[in-house]
Amino acid sequence: MSQAADRAAGRAAMGRERFDVIVIGGGHAGCEAAAAAARVGAAALLITQKRETIGAMSCNPAIGGLAKGTLVREVDALDGLMGRIADGAGIQFRVLNRSKGPAVRGPRAQQDRALYRAAMQAALDAQPNLTIREGTGAVLGDGESIPAPRVVLTTGTFLRGLIHIGERQIPAGRVGDAPATGLALTLERLGFRLGRLKTGTPPRLDGRTIDWAALEAQEGDEPPEPFSFLTAAITRAQVPCHITATGPEGHDLIRRNLARSPIYSGAIESRGPRYCPSIEDKVVRFADRSSHQIFLEPEGLTDHTVYPNGISTALPEDVQRALVATIPGLERAAVLRPGYASSTTTWTRAS
Protein backbone atom coordinates (compact mmCIF):
# COMPACT_ATOMS: atom_id res chain seq x y z
CA MET A 1 0.00 0.00 0.00
CA SER A 2 1.30 3.48 -0.88
CA GLN A 3 1.97 6.17 1.73
CA ALA A 4 -1.02 8.16 0.41
CA ALA A 5 -3.27 5.10 0.78
CA ASP A 6 -1.91 4.50 4.29
CA ARG A 7 -2.81 8.05 5.27
CA ALA A 8 -6.28 7.76 3.73
CA ALA A 9 -6.91 4.48 5.57
CA GLY A 10 -5.76 6.04 8.83
CA ARG A 11 -8.14 8.95 8.45
CA ALA A 12 -11.04 6.65 7.66
CA ALA A 13 -10.26 4.46 10.67
CA MET A 14 -10.36 7.47 12.98
CA GLY A 15 -13.90 8.21 11.81
CA ARG A 16 -13.32 11.92 11.24
CA GLU A 17 -11.94 14.09 8.47
CA ARG A 18 -8.23 14.77 8.76
CA PHE A 19 -5.76 16.41 6.39
CA ASP A 20 -2.01 16.32 5.87
CA VAL A 21 -1.84 19.95 4.72
CA ILE A 22 -4.16 22.93 5.16
CA VAL A 23 -3.71 25.94 2.86
CA ILE A 24 -5.44 29.17 3.89
CA GLY A 25 -6.15 31.57 1.03
CA GLY A 26 -7.34 30.95 -2.54
CA GLY A 27 -5.24 33.45 -4.49
CA HIS A 28 -2.32 32.65 -6.80
CA ALA A 29 -0.04 31.25 -4.07
CA GLY A 30 -2.77 29.31 -2.29
CA CYS A 31 -3.98 27.62 -5.44
CA GLU A 32 -0.47 26.49 -6.33
CA ALA A 33 0.33 25.34 -2.78
CA ALA A 34 -2.87 23.32 -2.42
CA ALA A 35 -2.54 21.72 -5.86
CA ALA A 36 1.15 20.90 -5.30
CA ALA A 37 0.44 19.20 -1.97
CA ALA A 38 -2.37 17.14 -3.50
CA ARG A 39 -0.24 16.15 -6.52
CA VAL A 40 2.35 14.47 -4.31
CA GLY A 41 -0.34 12.44 -2.54
CA ALA A 42 -1.03 14.52 0.55
CA ALA A 43 -4.63 15.02 1.67
CA ALA A 44 -4.90 18.77 1.16
CA LEU A 45 -7.55 21.22 2.30
CA LEU A 46 -7.86 24.69 0.75
CA ILE A 47 -9.75 27.15 2.97
CA THR A 48 -11.00 30.36 1.39
CA GLN A 49 -13.57 32.99 2.34
CA LYS A 50 -15.59 32.56 -0.86
CA ARG A 51 -15.34 29.60 -3.19
CA GLU A 52 -16.42 31.72 -6.17
CA THR A 53 -13.42 34.05 -5.80
CA ILE A 54 -10.77 31.31 -5.95
CA GLY A 55 -8.28 32.36 -8.63
CA ALA A 56 -9.60 35.93 -8.73
CA MET A 57 -7.05 38.44 -9.97
CA SER A 58 -7.44 41.18 -7.38
CA CYS A 59 -5.22 43.81 -8.99
CA ASN A 60 -3.46 43.71 -12.34
CA PRO A 61 -5.26 41.51 -14.90
CA ALA A 62 -1.99 40.08 -16.19
CA ILE A 63 0.37 37.21 -15.51
CA GLY A 64 4.14 37.56 -15.67
CA GLY A 65 6.28 40.56 -16.60
CA LEU A 66 9.87 41.43 -15.79
CA ALA A 67 11.26 38.80 -13.37
CA LYS A 68 7.70 37.59 -12.66
CA GLY A 69 7.44 35.91 -16.07
CA THR A 70 10.50 33.82 -15.25
CA LEU A 71 8.86 32.83 -11.97
CA VAL A 72 5.74 31.66 -13.82
CA ARG A 73 7.87 29.43 -16.04
CA GLU A 74 9.65 28.01 -12.99
CA VAL A 75 6.26 27.18 -11.45
CA ASP A 76 5.30 25.52 -14.74
CA ALA A 77 8.51 23.47 -14.73
CA LEU A 78 7.41 22.12 -11.33
CA ASP A 79 4.05 21.08 -12.86
CA GLY A 80 2.24 24.13 -11.46
CA LEU A 81 -1.04 25.49 -12.77
CA MET A 82 -0.49 29.19 -13.48
CA GLY A 83 1.34 28.95 -16.79
CA ARG A 84 -1.11 26.55 -18.40
CA ILE A 85 -4.15 28.49 -17.22
CA ALA A 86 -2.64 31.81 -18.31
CA ASP A 87 -2.04 30.35 -21.77
CA GLY A 88 -5.72 29.43 -22.03
CA ALA A 89 -7.10 32.71 -20.65
CA GLY A 90 -4.56 35.10 -22.20
CA ILE A 91 -5.85 37.81 -24.53
CA GLN A 92 -2.53 39.55 -25.29
CA PHE A 93 0.98 38.08 -25.04
CA ARG A 94 4.18 40.15 -25.12
CA VAL A 95 7.78 39.40 -24.23
CA LEU A 96 9.16 42.50 -22.52
CA ASN A 97 12.78 43.54 -23.17
CA ARG A 98 12.81 41.37 -26.28
CA SER A 99 15.56 43.56 -27.82
CA LYS A 100 17.84 42.84 -24.83
CA GLY A 101 19.59 39.70 -23.68
CA PRO A 102 17.65 36.54 -22.72
CA ALA A 103 18.46 37.00 -19.02
CA VAL A 104 16.33 40.15 -18.74
CA ARG A 105 13.41 39.26 -21.01
CA GLY A 106 10.04 38.96 -19.32
CA PRO A 107 7.07 37.08 -20.80
CA ARG A 108 3.76 38.74 -19.90
CA ALA A 109 0.16 37.94 -20.80
CA GLN A 110 -2.92 40.09 -20.37
CA GLN A 111 -5.71 37.90 -19.00
CA ASP A 112 -9.46 37.66 -19.27
CA ARG A 113 -10.26 37.76 -15.53
CA ALA A 114 -13.40 35.64 -15.79
CA LEU A 115 -11.74 32.97 -17.95
CA TYR A 116 -8.70 32.74 -15.65
CA ARG A 117 -10.82 32.43 -12.51
CA ALA A 118 -13.10 29.79 -14.02
CA ALA A 119 -10.18 27.73 -15.35
CA MET A 120 -8.36 27.79 -12.00
CA GLN A 121 -11.47 26.69 -10.15
CA ALA A 122 -12.03 23.87 -12.64
CA ALA A 123 -8.42 22.71 -12.28
CA LEU A 124 -8.68 22.59 -8.49
CA ASP A 125 -12.05 20.82 -8.58
CA ALA A 126 -10.50 18.15 -10.81
CA GLN A 127 -7.42 17.67 -8.59
CA PRO A 128 -7.46 14.37 -6.64
CA ASN A 129 -6.71 14.56 -2.90
CA LEU A 130 -7.87 18.19 -2.69
CA THR A 131 -10.85 19.45 -0.67
CA ILE A 132 -12.11 23.04 -0.71
CA ARG A 133 -13.92 24.68 2.21
CA GLU A 134 -15.13 28.20 2.90
CA GLY A 135 -13.77 29.79 6.06
CA THR A 136 -10.99 31.99 7.46
CA GLY A 137 -8.68 29.61 9.30
CA ALA A 138 -8.09 26.09 10.59
CA VAL A 139 -10.62 26.99 13.26
CA LEU A 140 -13.50 28.16 11.12
CA GLY A 141 -16.00 30.90 11.84
CA ASP A 142 -18.55 28.38 13.12
CA GLY A 143 -16.07 27.02 15.67
CA GLU A 144 -15.19 23.82 13.80
CA SER A 145 -11.57 22.82 14.36
CA ILE A 146 -9.75 21.04 11.55
CA PRO A 147 -6.50 19.34 12.61
CA ALA A 148 -3.47 19.01 10.36
CA PRO A 149 0.29 18.68 10.98
CA ARG A 150 1.08 21.43 8.44
CA VAL A 151 -0.66 24.74 7.72
CA VAL A 152 0.36 27.06 4.87
CA LEU A 153 -0.76 30.71 5.07
CA THR A 154 -1.24 32.48 1.73
CA THR A 155 -3.41 35.36 2.93
CA GLY A 156 -2.15 38.08 0.56
CA THR A 157 -3.74 41.45 1.38
CA PHE A 158 -6.42 39.92 3.62
CA LEU A 159 -4.49 39.56 6.90
CA ARG A 160 -6.00 42.41 8.96
CA GLY A 161 -6.29 44.29 5.66
CA LEU A 162 -7.27 47.94 5.47
CA ILE A 163 -8.26 49.85 2.31
CA HIS A 164 -7.44 53.57 2.07
CA ILE A 165 -9.26 55.97 -0.29
CA GLY A 166 -8.37 59.54 0.59
CA GLU A 167 -9.43 60.16 4.19
CA ARG A 168 -11.54 56.98 4.30
CA GLN A 169 -10.35 53.69 5.83
CA ILE A 170 -12.28 50.48 5.16
CA PRO A 171 -11.41 47.13 6.82
CA ALA A 172 -11.20 44.78 3.83
CA GLY A 173 -8.93 42.26 2.13
CA ARG A 174 -10.00 43.77 -1.19
CA VAL A 175 -13.11 45.63 -2.30
CA GLY A 176 -16.17 43.66 -1.19
CA ASP A 177 -14.31 41.08 0.93
CA ALA A 178 -13.78 41.13 4.69
CA PRO A 179 -10.26 41.02 6.19
CA ALA A 180 -8.86 38.04 8.09
CA THR A 181 -8.59 39.74 11.48
CA GLY A 182 -8.81 36.75 13.81
CA LEU A 183 -5.92 35.00 12.08
CA ALA A 184 -3.68 38.05 12.59
CA LEU A 185 -4.55 38.10 16.30
CA THR A 186 -3.68 34.41 16.55
CA LEU A 187 -0.25 34.97 14.97
CA GLU A 188 0.37 37.81 17.41
CA ARG A 189 -0.65 35.65 20.35
CA LEU A 190 1.76 32.93 19.18
CA GLY A 191 4.66 35.37 19.35
CA PHE A 192 5.14 36.31 15.70
CA ARG A 193 6.40 39.81 14.98
CA LEU A 194 3.78 41.67 12.93
CA GLY A 195 4.39 44.49 10.50
CA ARG A 196 2.55 46.26 7.69
CA LEU A 197 2.99 46.24 3.90
CA LYS A 198 1.37 48.69 1.49
CA THR A 199 0.35 48.12 -2.10
CA GLY A 200 -2.19 49.78 -4.34
CA THR A 201 -4.42 49.61 -7.38
CA PRO A 202 -5.63 52.17 -9.95
CA PRO A 203 -9.21 53.27 -10.64
CA ARG A 204 -11.12 51.07 -13.07
CA LEU A 205 -12.52 52.77 -16.17
CA ASP A 206 -15.47 52.10 -18.48
CA GLY A 207 -13.94 51.30 -21.86
CA ARG A 208 -17.09 52.48 -23.66
CA THR A 209 -16.32 56.05 -22.53
CA ILE A 210 -12.68 56.14 -23.68
CA ASP A 211 -11.63 57.96 -26.88
CA TRP A 212 -9.72 55.03 -28.39
CA ALA A 213 -9.14 56.81 -31.71
CA ALA A 214 -6.96 59.40 -29.95
CA LEU A 215 -4.66 56.76 -28.46
CA GLU A 216 -1.71 54.70 -29.65
CA ALA A 217 -2.50 51.00 -29.98
CA GLN A 218 -0.09 48.43 -28.60
CA GLU A 219 -0.41 45.06 -30.27
CA GLY A 220 0.79 41.79 -28.81
CA ASP A 221 3.48 39.54 -30.22
CA GLU A 222 2.77 37.55 -33.36
CA PRO A 223 2.81 34.68 -32.86
CA PRO A 224 2.11 34.83 -29.11
CA GLU A 225 4.65 32.96 -26.99
CA PRO A 226 3.15 30.60 -24.36
CA PHE A 227 4.23 30.39 -20.74
CA SER A 228 3.89 26.65 -20.33
CA PHE A 229 6.18 24.07 -21.83
CA LEU A 230 3.03 21.96 -22.34
CA THR A 231 1.21 24.54 -24.50
CA ALA A 232 1.75 23.93 -28.20
CA ALA A 233 0.23 27.23 -29.37
CA ILE A 234 -2.03 30.08 -28.24
CA THR A 235 -5.36 29.74 -30.03
CA ARG A 236 -7.53 32.37 -28.31
CA ALA A 237 -8.27 35.65 -30.12
CA GLN A 238 -5.87 38.45 -29.13
CA VAL A 239 -6.72 42.11 -28.47
CA PRO A 240 -4.64 45.32 -28.37
CA CYS A 241 -3.84 47.46 -25.37
CA HIS A 242 -3.48 51.25 -25.73
CA ILE A 243 -0.98 53.81 -24.46
CA THR A 244 -1.49 57.29 -23.01
CA ALA A 245 0.27 59.39 -20.34
CA THR A 246 -0.23 61.83 -17.51
CA GLY A 247 0.68 65.48 -18.06
CA PRO A 248 1.61 68.70 -16.19
CA GLU A 249 -2.02 69.54 -15.39
CA GLY A 250 -2.53 66.21 -13.67
CA HIS A 251 0.78 66.47 -11.83
CA ASP A 252 -0.18 69.90 -10.48
CA LEU A 253 -3.50 68.46 -9.33
CA ILE A 254 -1.71 65.67 -7.47
CA ARG A 255 0.72 68.06 -5.77
CA ARG A 256 -2.15 70.26 -4.56
CA ASN A 257 -3.85 67.25 -3.00
CA LEU A 258 -0.91 65.30 -1.53
CA ALA A 259 -2.09 66.05 2.01
CA ARG A 260 -5.33 64.22 1.21
CA SER A 261 -3.49 61.07 0.12
CA PRO A 262 -3.00 58.56 2.96
CA ILE A 263 0.38 57.74 1.44
CA TYR A 264 1.60 61.23 2.39
CA SER A 265 -0.77 62.27 5.19
CA GLY A 266 0.69 59.70 7.63
CA ALA A 267 -2.48 57.56 7.66
CA ILE A 268 -0.51 54.59 6.28
CA GLU A 269 2.36 53.39 8.44
CA SER A 270 3.77 50.61 6.31
CA ARG A 271 6.35 49.86 3.65
CA GLY A 272 5.47 49.80 -0.03
CA PRO A 273 6.92 47.57 -2.76
CA ARG A 274 9.54 49.36 -4.86
CA TYR A 275 8.22 47.88 -8.09
CA CYS A 276 4.67 49.25 -7.75
CA PRO A 277 4.79 52.99 -6.91
CA SER A 278 1.63 55.07 -6.78
CA ILE A 279 1.17 58.01 -9.14
CA GLU A 280 1.63 60.22 -6.08
CA ASP A 281 5.06 58.64 -5.50
CA LYS A 282 6.03 59.06 -9.15
CA VAL A 283 5.14 62.77 -9.17
CA VAL A 284 7.07 63.40 -5.93
CA ARG A 285 10.12 61.24 -6.61
CA PHE A 286 10.52 62.20 -10.26
CA ALA A 287 9.57 65.87 -10.03
CA ASP A 288 11.57 66.68 -13.17
CA ARG A 289 9.36 64.50 -15.38
CA SER A 290 6.36 66.11 -17.08
CA SER A 291 4.56 62.83 -17.87
CA HIS A 292 4.31 59.17 -16.88
CA GLN A 293 3.19 56.45 -19.29
CA ILE A 294 -0.12 54.65 -18.80
CA PHE A 295 -1.11 51.33 -20.40
CA LEU A 296 -4.86 50.85 -20.86
CA GLU A 297 -5.43 47.13 -20.40
CA PRO A 298 -8.77 45.36 -21.07
CA GLU A 299 -9.95 43.09 -18.27
CA GLY A 300 -11.76 40.65 -20.54
CA LEU A 301 -13.11 39.90 -23.99
CA THR A 302 -16.71 40.56 -22.87
CA ASP A 303 -15.92 42.98 -20.03
CA HIS A 304 -15.97 46.75 -20.62
CA THR A 305 -13.68 47.36 -17.61
CA VAL A 306 -10.25 48.84 -18.38
CA TYR A 307 -7.24 48.77 -16.06
CA PRO A 308 -5.11 51.96 -16.42
CA ASN A 309 -1.73 50.48 -15.53
CA GLY A 310 0.48 53.30 -14.23
CA ILE A 311 -1.83 55.39 -12.06
CA SER A 312 -2.18 53.34 -8.90
CA THR A 313 -3.49 55.84 -6.34
CA ALA A 314 -5.13 56.37 -2.95
CA LEU A 315 -6.25 59.94 -3.59
CA PRO A 316 -9.88 60.84 -2.73
CA GLU A 317 -12.48 59.86 -5.31
CA ASP A 318 -13.14 63.42 -6.49
CA VAL A 319 -9.43 63.97 -7.13
CA GLN A 320 -9.14 60.65 -8.96
CA ARG A 321 -11.97 61.60 -11.32
CA ALA A 322 -10.41 65.01 -11.95
CA LEU A 323 -7.00 63.39 -12.59
CA VAL A 324 -8.42 60.91 -15.11
CA ALA A 325 -10.08 63.79 -16.99
CA THR A 326 -6.65 65.44 -17.55
CA ILE A 327 -5.28 62.38 -19.40
CA PRO A 328 -5.43 62.31 -23.22
CA GLY A 329 -8.16 59.96 -24.42
CA LEU A 330 -9.72 59.77 -20.95
CA GLU A 331 -11.26 63.24 -20.83
CA ARG A 332 -14.78 61.77 -20.67
CA ALA A 333 -13.92 58.39 -19.21
CA ALA A 334 -16.23 57.12 -16.47
CA VAL A 335 -14.60 55.76 -13.31
CA LEU A 336 -16.29 52.46 -12.42
CA ARG A 337 -14.38 51.99 -9.16
CA PRO A 338 -11.85 54.24 -7.44
CA GLY A 339 -8.27 53.18 -6.90
CA TYR A 340 -7.08 52.51 -3.36
CA ALA A 341 -4.08 51.67 -1.24
CA SER A 342 -4.15 48.41 0.67
CA SER A 343 -2.32 48.07 3.98
CA THR A 344 -1.98 44.50 5.20
CA THR A 345 -0.28 42.64 8.04
CA THR A 346 2.97 40.75 7.52
CA TRP A 347 4.70 38.51 10.03
CA THR A 348 8.08 37.11 10.92
CA ARG A 349 9.26 34.96 13.78
CA ALA A 350 10.13 36.84 16.94
CA SER A 351 13.88 37.23 17.48
Rank of each mutant, 00 (worst) to 15 (best):
L183E: 13
D142P: 04
L185W: 11
L183I: 12
L153F: 08
P147H: 06
E134A: 01
T136G: 09
D125S: 06
D142R: 03
E167A: 11
E134Y: 03
E134R: 01
A123H: 01
L183K: 13
L159D: 03
G173C: 03
G161N: 02
L140A: 11
D177R: 08
A148L: 11
G156M: 03
A184D: 13
T131W: 07
P149E: 13
A172E: 08
L159Q: 04
L130Y: 05
G173D: 05
R133N: 10
G137W: 12
T136D: 10
P149V: 13
P147M: 03
L162M: 11
P171Y: 00
R174A: 11
T157C: 09
A180E: 09
G176R: 07
H164D: 01
G161S: 00
T154C: 13
G141V: 04
V152H: 04
G137V: 14
A172Q: 10
I170Y: 14
D177L: 09
A172S: 08
V139G: 03
R168C: 05
E134V: 00
I163Q: 07
L185T: 04
I163M: 07
V139L: 01
G182C: 13
R168Y: 03
A180G: 14
L130H: 07
T154S: 13
A184R: 15
T131M: 06
D142A: 02
T154N: 12
A126Q: 03
S145M: 07
G156V: 03
L183R: 13
A138C: 15
L124Y: 04
L185N: 10
A178E: 14
A180H: 09
G173R: 02
I132T: 10
I132G: 11
I132A: 10
L183M: 14
G176I: 05
L153Q: 04
S145V: 10
I146G: 07
E134H: 03
E144P: 01
V139R: 02
L153R: 01
V151Q: 09
A180Q: 12
A138D: 15
A180Y: 09
L159W: 05
I132D: 09
P179Y: 05
L153E: 05
G166R: 10
